[in-house]
């Protein structure tokens, strides 16, 4: 039996080979009742992959916007299972990547969590709060179920660690633009360019840069150093303010047009 959903790495490599920069967008699972329509709208508007935030009570890597979105989703009573049930019905032809924190994975058990992701068509996973030292077990168990673990690389990661991250990451490697949490920023940090170039120098995996990408111009700038960019808080701010899927799709199109 083949898994539902779209495998991450082949899809992104394909995009890159076609000369296209990779745009990854983010949606907090369960933020609003019709949240899956936002995922579909993002994909239709040109996102090459969509991250699905599975909200955790204590999101230490997130700034105010995604904290608020996570809190709002949890207040609606969503659970990892209800989010995955919803997402299984999504009509999208791009890969979906779960973005979450380790305690939710550990509580379910690696194997069960990975199987649930795979069964719902979510073929990638980012676990934001564990480093190389603690993630090997999860990476292996995820891999068994066909779930690609995307690892994060930070501006302060040593050359040795960057090489190891790139060796073990699947799908793409996620370059963290700034030392700090998620959230919009007026200017792109200089650390983004440096990290993007360091990553490109050591890996053939798609390199996608995220954290603090707030405008289409910033996305274009950072995507030029790497293979693409992640846009999250800027979109969640809109959803929190009441924007519908069509409005969010227009913004995604603007990011798409800018990064090329």
């Amino acid at each position: 039996m083949t898994s539902p959903g779209v495998a991450v790495e082949p899809h992104l490599r394909c995009a890159r080979e076609a000369g296209r920069k990779i745009l990854v967008t983010y949606m907090t699972g369960g933020l609003v009742a019709d949240w899956v329509r936002y995922v579909e709208a993002m994909a239709d508007a040109g996102a090459d992959a969509v991250e699905i935030g599975i909200p955790f009570s204590d999101p230490v890597m997130d700034g105010p916007t995604i904290q608020e979105a996570s809190g709002a989703a949890l207040a609606r009573g969503v659970t990892p299972a209800s989010i995955l049930d919803d997402v299984a019905r999504a009509q999208v032809e791009v890969p979906l990547v779960a973005m979450t924190y380790y305690n939710l994975v550990a509580r379910a058990g690696h194997v069960r969590f990975a199987r649930q992701l795979a069964a719902s068509g979510v073929r990638g996973a980012i676990v934001a709060d564990i480093p190389l030292e603690e993630s090997a077990g999860w990476e292996a168990d995820a891999g068994e179920s066909g779930v690609e673990t995307v690892l994060l690389a930070a501006p302060v990661s040593s050359d040795d660690r960057l090489a190891e991250i790139c060796r073990r990451s699947h799908g793409f490697v996620y370059g963290v633009n700034v030392m700090g949490v998620t959230g919009e920023r007026a200017r792109l940090s200089t650390s983004a360019e440096i990290l993007a170039k360091r990553l490109k120098a050591v890996t053939d995996l798609p390199v996608v840069m995220g954290f603090g990408v707030s405008t289409p111009e910033q996305a274009a700038t950072v995507a030029a150093y790497a293979d693409g960019a992640v846009v999250a808080s800027a979109l969640m701010r809109m959803v929190l303010a009441g924007a519908g899927p069509a409005e969010v799709a227009d913004t995604v199109k603007a990011f798409r047009a800018a990064i090329g």
Binding site: V60, I130, L132, E133, L151, A154, P155, V156
Partner: peptide
Amino acid sequence: PTGRFGEFGGMYVPESLVPA
């Protein structure tokens, strides 16, 4: 170096905090 007390402890931090 791994900070383990039996199965407990460890260093479960984002990559950004590992060097610190």
